[in-house]
Every structure is written in structure tokens, then in C-alpha cells.
């Protein structure tokens, strides 16, 4: 089943991605293909397989509570599209 325009636009909005009409048409196809592949995966019988969030059998990976040097302010702000003094500057987000 193909995704609707509305569904694609909603996903785009959540991902903060702007789309042209052509993009929407193309992504309706591509995202639907991806979902179809998941449908194929669903056919595997997983009755006796416990759910996992990991593909490798790791658990309890933690670090000690120790401080290491951070980046310099200059490095931190180096890639900012917009900055002001020691801060990143972004569009207004007043509540």
C-alpha cells in the first residue's frame, strides 16, 4: 500500500525537512518500498525469539564518573551557521 501525500508530509515535518511536490511523489514510492521490505521481514516466525534493541549481545557498558577536557569555545562554535558572542544563535522559539 502506497503512503499518502499527507503521511509523507507529516513525516517530513517531524524530521524538519522541506519537500517539493516532486520530492513527495518520489518519497511516496521510496518509503512505501522500504515499508514493503519490513512487511517481508514480518513473515519470519519470531514466536520464540525475545525482542531486542541491539543487534550485538552487549549489556552493562558504562563509564566511570571522571571529567575530561571539553572542546574550546572556538571549536564548539566553529560550525554554527549563526552565532552571537559565546552563543549559538537560532530562530525565535518563544513558548
Amino acid at each position: 500500500m502506497k503512503l499518502s501525500r499527507e503521511e509523507v508530509l507529516r513525516i517530513a515535518r517531524l524530521a524538519r525537512v522541506g519537500l517539493t511536490d516532486e520530492d513527495v511523489d518520489r518519497l511516496r514510492e521510496q518509503l512505501s518500498d522500504i515499508l514493503e521490505n519490513f512487511e517481508a521481514l514480518k513473515q519470519v516466525d519470531t514466536t520464540d525469539v525475545p525482542p531486542t534493541t541491539q543487534s550485538i549481545p552487549l549489556q552493562n557498558v558504562t563509564k566511570d564518573d571522571e571529567v575530561a577536557p571539553s572542546l574550546s569555545q572556538e571549536q564548539t562554535l566553529a560550525n554554527a551557521p549563526r552565532k552571537e558572542g559565546e552563543y549559538f544563535r537560532v530562530r525565535a522559539v518563544l513558548e
Binding site: K63, E66, V67, A68, S70, S72, Q73, T76, L77, G85, E86, Y87, F88
Partner: peptide, 13 residues
């Protein structure tokens, strides 16, 4: 491993 002691630190340091 960044320090949590930010109250008196310069912004983004």
C-alpha cells in the same frame, strides 16, 4: 566526560 559544573562557567565551554 564533560564537567557538569557549569553554573559559573562561560557559555558553551
Amino acid at each position: 566526560r564533560c564537567s557538569t559544573d557549569y553554573t559559573s562557567a562561560p557559555p558553551n565551554s
